[in-house]
Structures are given as C-alpha cells and as structure tokens.
C-alpha cells in the first residue's frame, strides 16, 4: 500500500490477496480511505510574511542588519566597542584641562570686554531704578536687601 515492501514480499502479498477475499476486501477498503484523505485535504498555502520574519531574524544573526536589542545580543565587534569609551575619556580630559588652555595670553582682553559689558548694563539699570521717594518703592518686597548706592557689579 505504501510501497514499503520489496519485490518478493510484494509478490507474496499480491498472491495472497488474490486467493483471500476477506483480506482483499480489507486491503481495498483501507486503500480507498487513504485515497479519499489524500484527495480531499488541500495543501494550505504558506503566507509570505512567515519568510519575511524568518529572513529578518537570520539577517540579524549574521549581523547584516542590526538585530533588535536583546539581553542575549552579542557585544559589538572592535573597533565599535571603543567608540563610547573613547568619547567619555575625551570629554573628561577636556573638562580637566580646559581651564589651563590659553589662560595668560587672552586674559586682559577678556577682562576688558567683560568690564565694558558690565558698565553698559550698569548705565541701563540705573536708568530703570525706582527712586526711594516713589510710592512704588514701598511695594517692593526686596527693598530692605537693596542698597541703591552700591552696585555689586560696578567697576572701580
């Protein structure tokens, strides 16, 4: 029935079936049911999205495309693993050394520009200052902390 018997065995079975009506009937009956099953069960088509998922996963395995991050994801290969380490080390060095770079050469110029800026701010803030005689002065909650005659940013 399944083609499992070799030539001699098959011949022996055929010979028996020829002479034995009950075995022949049983054989025919089983064979018919198998054909009915085979003929009436459709092959279910496989949708394309299945391969798409498989493909995406194996591409990730091969490192062709970055896989979704997962706890079991392998560490990136050299030199990529050194990129964040180098960046952090560089930043640290900059923060430590920056105050010493070019401190003497440009200082007078920077101080001068800073003072000019403060002067200009002082003039404009004085113009906006409220006089102590002004009634609005009493409403200022910070008045006790202010000394109108001394400006902490003034330049001698």
């Amino acid at each position: 029935m399944d083609g499992e018997l070799d030539g001699a065995e098959s011949a022996a079975v055929q010979s028996h079936l020829k002479d034995c009506p009950s075995c022949r009937q049983e054989f025919q009956s089983l064979k018919a049911s198998l054909e009915i099953v085979e003929d009436n069960l459709p092959k279910l088509p496989l949708r394309g999205r299945v391969w798409h998922e498989i493909h995406s996963e194996i591409q990730g395995d091969l490192g062709i495309r970055a896989p979704a991050p997962s706890p079991s994801a392998p560490a990136p290969r050299w030199p990529y693993r050194w990129i964040p380490v180098t960046a952090v080390a560089g930043l640290g060095m900059y923060l430590v050394l920056a105050p010493f770079w070019g401190s003497s050469e440009h200082e007078p110029d920077v101080v001068q520009r800073f003072n000019s800026f403060i002067e200009s701010r002082q003039i404009s803030s004085q113009a906006a200052t409220i006089s102590a005689d002004d009634p609005a002065w009493d409403e200022n909650p910070f008045r006790e902390n202010l000394e109108l005659d001394s400006n902490p940013f003034s330049v001698e």
């Binding site: 022949r24 054989f27 025919q28 009956s29 064979k31 018919a32 054909e35 009915i36």
Partner: peptide, 11 residues
C-alpha cells in the same frame, strides 16, 4: 459515505 464508500477507488 455509507454505501458510496470505495466506489470511486476500485483496486
């Protein structure tokens, strides 16, 4: 299939 069983699949 009842009596129709096997009709289309003779040995």
């Amino acid at each position: 299939l009842g009596e129709n069983y096997g009709m289309s699949h003779p040995l």
